[in-house]
Amino acid sequence: MGLEEKLPSGFLLTTVEQAAGWVRKASVFPATFGLACCAIEMMTTGAGRYDLARFGMEVFRGSPRQADLMIVAGRVSQKMAPVLRQVYDQMPSPKWVISMGVCASSGGMFNNYAIVQGVDHIVPVDIYLPGCPPRPEMLMDAILKLHHKIQTSKLGVNAEEAAREAEEAALKALPTIEMKGLLR
């Protein structure tokens, strides 16, 4: 009945969304945004033993204008925060952020005057990666999860719809302090 039957063999049909997601996820260009200890583990992930090249991610771009993934690797200080936002703004859309390590995710052990308590105060974060610093395997896992997220992301009207739904859900969500249960 459908279009499929009229096609010659050897063709594969998919949605534009899936095709775009597949293409996007396979060539993510991370910006070098090494800040502290996590940056060393990020470099290790790119080097021989862990070999990020297997996922098409080994080319760390020096210029944010050529990058679409920002791996915030390390603690973000109050002095660095405006710079970080500027680099993020310079990256072309669509762009993603991995917050690598506890310091970038929540301030971690440095709960003090100098450190921004979570990079999500400055830029929207797609993946939070715990660990101090996270092992290279953990970073790769975060990247694979991000690939999955990119693959399933929506386009056009659907993207707007998804964003609106996410916002509504976030507004309705129960604040952490009001949740009951174990300290988890």
């Binding site: 929540s106 952490t176 302090i177 249960g181």
Partner: peptide
């Protein structure tokens, strides 16, 4: 040299607070 140029106060004096924020968990702070 370390803090932003427009920072107010001298952070490692004893009368300057550490500046941490409370951390929220499920049902506890």
């Amino acid at each position: 040299i370390m803090m932003p140029d427009d920072w107010q106060g001298f952070p490692q004096r004893k009368d300057y607070p550490l500046g941490g924020i409370p951390v929220e968990y499920k049902g506890a702070q």
